[in-house]
Amino acid sequence: MPIKLITSANHSIPASLQSPLPDQQFLYYSRQLLLPDWSEQRQLQLLQKKLLIIGLGGLGCPAATYLAGAGVGWLLLADGDKVELSNLPRQTLFRTSDIGLNKAEAAAATLQQLNPFVRIDALPQMLDEAELSRRIAWADLVLDCSDNLATKLAINRICQQQQRCWLGASASGYQGYSWLINPTSGGCLHCLGHQQPLLTGGCLQQGVYTPLVGQLGLQLASMALQQLANGRRRRSFVQIYQHHHQQFSQCQLLADPQCECCGVTADV
């Protein structure tokens, strides 16, 4: 079956995704529906959610795979990069035949085959600030899976301006962490220390531990499902990977009262 990439124009949730859940979809989501805290109603609610994933690399591929599989109704995938041979060990949506293709488009094609019951859009470009702001405003939730500081800081700034809760992660070498940032509880990427050029470099300089980006991507998927399901606004936190101990530690992110990005908005 040819895969049709739906463009960003004429967006609406298909009528088929209103209740009740069609038989084939009931079968598709059956293992999830068996969970004690899941229900057809919850599935239908998830099918009406809109998610923006920025970056379809080592973090974005696993996150998008499990969120499409779980039945997030509308995924918007943004990435301007092309698939390269060195991506394949970690970026599991791609095959050698995808080399040279745009990552967002190649990922959308694979995900649409994985779950034909959700809507997948590809944005095959780097988003400028205005476009990023417009897309963030559109989404119910934003996942930062990008691989560079400038994009992360732009997302941080815009989500702060729009008071939008968002998720993200970073990894390089054996170091990595994921986060949930809730602007209304204070704390942001600036407060964490991302306001300056990072001295440690990125994956191009330091390499990256292959399973780590997968673990972080799955964490983002799980956090996103929880956030989309109950909408409860948690306090900002960071989950830090400790390679030596093979474990993650969750820590609350405290607001810097003088933070140039969020210092005036914290109200908790």
Binding site: G187, C191, L192, L198, L199, V238, I240, C251, L254, D256
Partner: peptide
């Protein structure tokens, strides 16, 4: 020294300023 790090003290990440 010379590394760009964050520090969590007893599960709270402390802003560098503090």
């Amino acid at each position: 020294d010379g590394q760009h790090v964050a520090i969590a003290l007893n599960t709270e990440i402390m802003p560098r300023r503090l």
